[in-house]
Design a protein around this nucleic acid. Structure first.
Length: 441
RNA sequence: GUGGCUAUAGCUCAGUUGGUUAGAGCGCCAGAUUGUGGUUCUGGAUGUCGCCGGUUCAAAUCCGGUUAGCCACCCCA
């Protein structure tokens, strides 16, 4: 046959096979339930927006990475590259009808036309949650609690949420007379872990245009060590008379104290003055979450406070705070850490089809078991039993139910536990559900 | 967007200085076992060597282009 079209996917885009897709859906379910447990409501927005809504609202980089084109009606449109800018538009448009504060979560795909690398794709999913319309530090603290619960509900024990506050950084920059160059300086500081002290100084002096002395001084301050409270005490002293720095310090102090009282294990939250976040719109608290066992993969949940989210869309001032779970990156880490189950079926029970004329009985049982809350699949063909069991084994069903003439005559069902070796159980239908519950525990 | 590395069976890869019909392991299919999986044994199928073009008597092998993956820069989830 000539003229076959080669099946292929676009650069940076990919298919999801059942096993990873099930892990992905589980992750999304977990995220939703945590968000809902704090009272965040779901919303959605269109994937495609007028380009003017998206252009220039992120960084220069995001403009370059936009998937942008003219639609059939001649409109200049683009795919969203994050969920925050759509949220800004959404808030400006709807906050009057919804009221403030607005707590929303938003799970959806975003697109960036950047060069793909491991764990970085042109289409990926974000799971954002934000609190709009309040400047209260309580929301900053709650955001951190949500991140913490999210990570532990997903199943991570060894992770740290690094916290900082832009006001502290701004205070430092103000004292060094670097306010004008803050974006470049912060971007350089953000790279400290990656390129080292010398690299950061080099970048600051050559690219950003600070003096050697300014660069060193900034790094000294940012590199303060000790427990959070020790560092905060030093900052407090340093910022006497500096309002911006003092406010940032006070907010961080309240955050650490409240988290301790709320029962977050110490050590899971770190004060790290070097995290700056590249995004220009953050103005207060900043969060980054690292997996202790997969630090190199980068932050899996990041966010922060922005005090004027929708300034480009409305004169109403809409401060907010929130964070975004990097679903695909997290999933890649979980795969590497062996946290993803290998089963490729959601069904826990396979009913084999032994006697084709008994199809009705198999289907009746399957409905009865589904009614009882089990996920049940009936094998579609009455082929050799060995083949059906092999299928169950491969797909990851936990139990198989078998019945042929012998069983039907005796009025029983046979249960085979595929996770262990051994003799199958046989029992009447009356006892079946209870036994299955026990086996699937 | 810039630079580097890579591309051989469904998957992971081998293929010696270009030389006849391109290999292995795993997986897949069938049988041993016509009522019982994951172990074992036996047999079997599968490739225009990513794609296009060039050099050559001869290309999986060399050259150019292209597409995709990976890595670095940049940025970020």
């Amino acid at each position: 046959m000539a003229g076959l079209i080669e099946p292929r996917t676009l650069k940076g885009f990919r298919d999801y096979l059942p096993a990873p897709m099930m892990a992905r859906e589980r992750l999304i379910e977990t995220a939703k339930s945590v968000y809902r447990s704090y009272g965040f409501s779901p919303i959605d927005t269109p994937a495609l927006e007028y380009a003017e809504i998206l252009v220039g609202k992120g960084s220069d980089e995001t403009d370059k990475q936009l998937f942008r084109f003219t639609d059939n009606g001649g409109r200049d449109v683009a795919l969203r590259f994050d969920l925050t800018v759509p949220l800004a538009r959404f808030s400006a448009q709807h906050h009057h009808e919804l009221g403030l504060p607005l707590k929303r979560y938003h799970i959806g795909s975003v697109w960036r036309g950047e060069t793909p690398q491991a764990g970085r794709y042109r289409e990926f999913m974000q799971c954002d949650f934000d609190t709009i319309g309040t400047e209260s530090n309580a929301s900053d603290i709650e955001t951190l609690l949500v991140i913490h619960d999210l990570m532990s509900k997903i199943g991570f024990e060894r992770f740290t949420i690094r916290v900082n506050n832009r006001l502290v950084l701004n205070g430092l920059l103000e004292q060094q007379g670097l306010t004008e160059k803050s974006v470049g300086v912060l971007r350089a500081i953000d790279k400290l872990a990656k390129i080292g002290r010398g690299g950061v100084i080099e970048e600051m002096t050559s690219k950003v245009g600070t003096t050697q002395q300014q660069a060193e001084r900034v790094l000294d301050l940012v590199g303060l060590t000790g427990t959070p409270s020790e560092i905060l005490n030093q900052l407090e002293t340093m910022f006497v008379g500096n309002e911006v720095g003092s406010t940032g310090t006070a907010r961080l102090k309240e955050l650490f104290e409240a988290c301790a009282k709320a029962g977050i294990p110490s050590g899971r939250i770190e004060l790290d003055l070097t995290i700056a976040r590249g995004l220009d719109y953050y103005t207060g608290t900043i969060y980054e979450t690292f997996l202790a066992d997969k630090r190199e993969i980068g932050s899996v949940c990041s966010g922060g406070r922005y005090d004027n989210l929708a300034g480009l869309f409305t004169k109403d001032r809409l401060p907010g705070v929130g964070a975004s779970l990097g679903l695909d990156r997290l999933l890649a880490a979980m795969e590497l850490l062996g946290m993803v189950e290998t089963a490729s079926t959601p069904a826990e029970i396979l009913i084999t089809q032994f006697d084709a004329p008994r199809l009705g009985d198999y289907l009746r049982l399957s409905r009865l078991l589904r009614e009882a809350g089990f996920r049940v699949e009936v094998y579609p063909e009455a082929t050799k039993l060995g083949k059906q069991l092999k299928y169950a084994d491969k797909k990851g069903h936990k139990l198989a139910i078998i019945a042929g003439e012998n069983e039907f005559n005796a009025g029983v069902w046979q249960i085979k536990n595929l996770r262990v070796q051994g003799q199958p159980l046989t029992m009447s239908e009356a006892h079946l559900v209870a036994e299955l519950r026990k086996l699937l525990g």
